[in-house]
Design a protein around this nucleic acid. Structure first.
Length: 473
RNA sequence: GGCGCCGUACCCAAGUGGUAAGGGAGAGGUCUGCAAAACCUUUAUGCACCGGUUCGAAUCCGGUCGGCGCCUCCA
């Protein structure tokens, strides 16, 4: 199966070819764990998950590494900003280590509930300080660094290709347009590799280094960790679109300056989720979290479905209206699939070889769609078409759906419990009573019971096979 | 100030040169004691606006208006 990816490096669609045989090495930028992830953050992780699932689906051997940024980083460029971990620690009364642990667990709870497959390796920055120090040393040996004001900086003037991915024209950049420039820097775009002499009280996240006690700059962790797990050259690096200009630009500079060779072949960036006021950000304070959606009665997979409706490189407009639409769509889809499953119940399942031409065609079209820069929303449309196809056998539908859902990750075949709730005794009694009333043609009582159940949030369905119910959407 | 993206029906959106995917919502129908659910049908001569290129444009080019992002930390 051919896979084309839009590479930020070239700003073009490129056909994907792995560096080594059938292996695909994916590094994705992970969460900063000083707060809950908001649903905008999670959109990017869903995008990475789709990428990974499509690679798996295509038969590649994927290894996926993701960092956990548990080192506090400054909110400003000039050393005057506040350390976010410390801030969070001060506000909650917990230690920075507890904070990191707590939010890391919260992050994985969220991603698990979104059916996001966990990376093979999730590596904490704080557990790779030595690797970072080693990398900085290498850069130092090659003359790419200088020390000023107690910090070790990367000197971008020693790396002529600086900014090539972002297309930055250095002279045109208005550095300091929004923030004060660190006066120790030789070039405003230089960045810190290692901070020493923390000015923060109670700074506990400090380590010994050749340059003194301190802590690493933000960018170095991804370079150091990806090289540790993947070596100096790997296939795909992805993250949010905001990382292009600074974070990934700096990562490329320090990585390629250290090794002297190309670091990453394909760079993929996911666009933002926005709401009426624009992009969501942690610094806005109260932000939309997944658990808030759950409190409001949504299933995490409603949000996943919502995200699959748009291409990863388009901004997606969030609203509860749109989320409701996704929720309805997902439940409708599952109901249809439940019926298909029911009808196939006693029949033997199909194998790849016994698929009809029509089925094969669906699969080819689907593969073509998702292979073209992960066009998952087009793939979803393909899936709907299969579900609604009146000529395709149910068995075949089931086969195709199962295969395709390995890419969507929507648990579409899980139709048993989730949406239909636990049968409570009360509901069952009422339903039985209503069935009796209807048999006796006592329709006023039957309608009365239906109203009662309605108020309890239960929806009644009278089918030829009997009365069923489900929780109201 | 520099760079980039976007503007498609009531809503979310796909489509980037060959005559508008999909979903939600709405409407009509079948079914039903009535409903609900389910199922079927239906909903943009039109893709912000103006001009141009082309046999042909939502798609390419130029302009106008509007929205968003990046150039601090950020998904």
């Amino acid at each position: 199966m051919k896979i084309q990816l839009y590479n930020t490096l070239s700003r073009k669609l490129e056909t994907f070819t792995p560096i080594s045989g059938n292996e695909v090495k994916i590094y994705s930028c992970g969460p900063t764990v000083y707060n809950y992830a908001h649903i905008g953050n999670l959109r990017t992780f869903i995008f990475v998950d789709i990428l990974r699932r499509i690679m798996d689906y295509s038969g590649y051997e994927v290894s996926h590494v993701m960092n956990i940024t548990d080192v506090g980083h400054l909110s400003g460029d000039d050393d005057s900003g506040e350390d976010k971990m410390l801030k969070s620690s001060r506000e909650s009364g917990k230690t920075v280590w507890d904070i990191a642990q707590y939010y890391t667990e919260a992050f994985f709870r969220d991603t698990d509930s979104l059916n996001i497959i966990r990376p093979h390796t999730a590596c904490r920055a704080t557990e790779h300080i030595q690797e970072m120090i080693d990398l900085i040393r290498k850069l130092e040996e090659k003359g790419h660094t200088y020390t000023a004001g107690g910090n070790v900086y990367f000197s971008i003037d020693t790396f002529p290709e600086y900014g090539k991915m972002a297309g930055l024209k250095l002279d045109d950049l208005q550095s300091g347009a929004r923030i004060k420039i660190d006066s120790s820097k030789k070039n405003p775009k230089d960045f810190v590799l290692w901070f020493t002499n923390s000015k923060f009280e109670n700074q506990v996240m400090i380590w010994d280094s050749p340059w003194g006690k301190g802590y690493p700059g933000w960018h170095i962790e991804c370079s150091a960790m990806s090289m540790k797990y993947f070596g100096s050259h790997f296939d795909i690096h992805c993250g949010g679109t905001d990382l292009i200009n600074i974070h990934h630009t700096n990562e490329i500079a320090q990585s390629e300056a250290a090794t002297g060779n190309k670091w990453v072949n394909y760079w993929l960036h996911g666009e933002f989720l926005i709401d009426e006021s624009g992009k969501m950000s942690k610094s806005k304070g109260d932000s939309l979290t997944l658990s808030y959606l759950v409190e409001r009665g949504y299933d995490p997979l409603d949000y996943r479905y919502f995200c699959l409706g748009a291409h990863y490189r388009s901004q997606l407009q969030f609203s509860f209206n749109a989320l409701d639409a996704a929720k309805n769509a997902r439940l409708n889809l599952k109901e249809r699939i439940r019926l298909i499953k029911e009808k196939c119940d006693k029949q033997p399942s199909l194998s790849e070889g016994s698929i009809s031409d029509s089925g094969k065609n669906y699969l080819n079209v689907f593969n073509e769609h998702i292979g073209k820069d992960l066009n998952i929303s087009r793939g979803l449309a393909d899936l709907w078409q299969i579900v609604k196809d009146m000529l395709l056998s149910d068995q075949e539908k089931l086969f195709l759906l199962t295969k395709m859902d390995s890419v969507f990750g929507l648990s579409l075949l899980n139709t048993e419990k989730e949406d239909f709730g636990d049968i409570t005794q009360e509901i069952e009694l009422l339903i039985n009573e209503r069935v009796d009333a209807r048999t006796e043609q006592n329709f006023s009582r039957a309608d009365e019971i239906r109203d009662i159940l309605q108020k309890m949030g239960i929806e009644i369905k009278d089918t030829p096979a009997g009365t069923t119910w489900r929780k109201k959407v």
